[in-house]
Design a protein around this nucleic acid. Structure first.
Length: 586
RNA sequence: GCGGCGGUCGUCUAGCCUGGACUAGGACGCCGGCCUUCCACGCCGGCAAUCCCGGGUUCAAAUCCCGGCCGCCGCACCA
């Protein structure tokens, strides 16, 4: 234990390197810092953009005819988060012990004490239950405070009126649900349709203490994928069906088994471990994407979340976990089946039609839910407003009213909130040429900063006492270093010219002539520059340079002209190092 | 938010217990120069810390005391 405390762990080494070389550091340092916020430095911001671009390749560009990217605001009006359920569910009821000061989740505490579910009760009701049952602090038996709520949402106000409350979004998803109809229309009614977004989100964590791993403001990369629930098949599943993934199944978790099983995507679908093909497809892509960041398959696992562990909107969620040194398995992505929860809620709360229409090839008989008024109950309860209500009902869209009833538990007509008892819902057979439906949604959602950290951790290696960041060469923030062997003419001029030419090719390049060649290689290795070109005296004679491999320290010699063409190919993994030139004898 | 421990150049650290000789020392790094024909070489010079912030005790505070901030560990929390 003492040894563990005195020796630096990998996390500390990464943080030290990150701070020193400009990947990331704690924000607001000169004012003492604030927990849960980081700045990305010059190298970190490039690395993050490269990770984002790789995500883009895997999730957007690969499917660009039907998955598109948008940007929506980080600040949301209250109404959106009311509809999404975050205002209600993103809040924890908390009680404090008046004696020892410990804080507890009030609902958990009560459920433990009286063995009954108290889900959905107000803080006031919870306080009453605590009093009635004389529940005390489980730690010191002290008196408990009133129950209050702690919201993980960052609150602000919009404009000059303080009653106009807004929040920083806790996920990018809601912006995409709210904009669904616009995107759907601009994509000319494409179904299935994916909407992706990369953006900052905020969650006001109570006590984030895991550096870059647990942030109050971070970047999410997510796709909301909308499809017809009657056509849940993914046409690309054959591309990935033989891929193996490691799954911690719900079944095994309930038995207390936390070891993952290895199954093919096909097997996981057949056995019902994964409920939907699209979800499975995105999980397969997710695994490959993370693999390309340098995190091997056997350091990744998907954990099926049990109902009580899932977010309010989800009917199945897999956490995608990767192994890191200090904290073990951390979640880098969530893969959720959100069903029609979000669109239904927004339809009910906004009163806007968010269904899509599909036409049948020929008329079909379908079962349709139809809502009508329960006139008897209505007339008895509201004899005076009866006619007004009937009138209002007749003017409204019946599908939207159905959604409103499901989302809110009531429909507002002529100023009255009418619960389900005022309506009749019948399933009727109809012969129609098409129908409207609410798309279902599957969501792969990644945390960019966690991926960035994990990427650094897997890249970090030590060779001969020197640090080498073995970043995948297509995401390394700097692609190439150019050095004169010694800082003398004409080597310097030649090296600078080569440096300029690579910059013109659009590469991120560094030029360095300080110190000696060994030191320059070492500095480049430490920030993960995959290749280094060195101009030596032979360059003066025959226009060849040496190219050095960061990972092996091997060198090849090649004509400069060839290097301009081949190095970009190497960086895209289209060439291997040996293809760059002839091996150099030591 | 509670409890324990900690916070000194960019990084790692010496000093703190036992207040004064500290103008806060070193190493690495970084910058400039010399040297150098391939892996943190050598030499010279330089940059860099009002010792986390604020208050107190004292003739005197990096050092002792109190509060705050931040970090680590444990508890709680983590849709």
């Amino acid at each position: 234990m003492l040894k563990a405390l005195s020796e630096k762990d990998l996390y500390e080494k990464i943080v030290e390197l990150a701070v020193r070389r400009g990947f990331f550091w704690q924000s607001y340092e000169i004012y003492g810092g604030v927990a849960g916020f980081v700045d990305l430095g010059p190298l970190g911001s490039i690395l993050k953009k490269n990770i984002e671009n790789k995500w883009r390749q895997w999730f957007i560009l690969k499917h660009q005819d039907f998955i598109v990217e948008i940007e929506s605001p980080a600040i949301m009006p209250k109404a959106v988060l009311e509809a999404s359920g975050h205002l209600e569910h993103f809040t924890d009821p908390i009680v404090e012990c008046l004696r020892c000061g410990r804080k507890f989740r009030a609902d958990h505490l009560i459920e433990d004490a009286i063995g009954k579910s108290v889900e959905g009760l107000t803080p006031h009701q919870l306080t009453e239950i605590i009093k009635e049952n004389n529940i005390k602090c489980p730690s010191c038996s002290g008196q408990l405070s009133e129950v209050r709520t702690f919201s993980l949402l960052f609150r602000t106000t919009i404009g000059p009126y303080s009653e106009n409350v807004g929040f920083i979004r806790p996920e990018a998803a809601q912006g995409m649900f709210v904009a669904f109809k616009r995107v759907y229309d601009s994509m000319r009614g494409r179904m299935p349709l994916g909407i992706g977004q990369i953006g900052k989100v905020g969650r006001n964590e109570i006590s984030p203490r895991q550096g870059v791993i647990r942030l109050r403001e971070f970047t999410i990369m997510e796709v909301e994928f909308f499809f017809d629930p009657e056509k849940p098949k993914c046409p690309f599943i054959s591309e990935v069906e033989n891929d193996e993934i490691r799954l911690i199944t719900a079944e095994n978790k309930l038995k207390g088994i936390k070891e993952p099983i290895t199954v093919t995507i096909k097997g996981a679908l057949e056995k019902g471990y994964i409920v939907n093909e699209w979800l499975a497809y995105f999980m397969a892509l997710a695994q490959k994407f993370v693999r390309e960041l340098g995190i091997p398959f056997n350091k990744q696992v998907f954990e099926d979340k049990l109902p009580h562990e899932r977010a309010h909107y989800s009917s199945q969620t897999f956490d995608q976990l990767v192994k890191v040194s200090r904290w073990g398995w951390i979640e880098v992505a969530g893969h959720s089946y959100r069903g029609d929860y979000d669109l239904s809620r927004h339809m009910g709360f906004s009163g806007k039609d968010l269904t899509v229409y599909k036409q049948f090839s020929e008329s079909q008989e379908v079962l349709v839910e139809e809502i009508s008024l329960n006139h008897e109950v209505l007339e008895r309860s509201y004899p005076e407003e009866y006619r007004k209500i009937v009138n209002a009902f007749s003017k409204r869209d019946k599908n939207i009213m159905l959604a409103e009833l499901k989302a809110k538990g009531y429909i507002e007509l002529a100023g009255k909130r009418l619960g389900p008892e005022f309506f009749k819902i019948a399933k009727v057979k109809k012969v129609v040429k098409g129908k409207r439906f609410i798309p279902h949604v599957v969501e792969p959602s990644f945390g960019a900063e966690r991926l960035l950290y994990a990427t650094l951790e897997y890249a970090y290696t030590v060779k001969n006492g020197r640090v080498i960041l073995r970043l995948p060469r297509d995401i390394a923030p700097i692609s190439l270093a150019v050095f004169p062997l010694v800082s003398k003419e004409p080597l310097v001029s030649i090296a600078k010219e080569i440096y300029e030419n690579f910059k013109k090719e659009g590469l991120r390049v560094i030029y360095d002539e300080s110190g000696n060649i060994g030191r320059r290689y070492a500095r480049a290795d430490e920030i993960g520059v995959p290749l280094a070109i060195t101009v030596d005296y032979q360059t003066v004679k025959d226009n060849t340079v040496t190219i050095r491999n960061r990972d092996t320290w091997e060198q090849v010699r090649a004509p400069i002209k060839e290097a301009y063409v081949k190095i970009p190919e190497y960086l895209r993994y289209r060439l291997e190092f040996k293809d760059l030139g002839v091996p150099l004898k030591k």
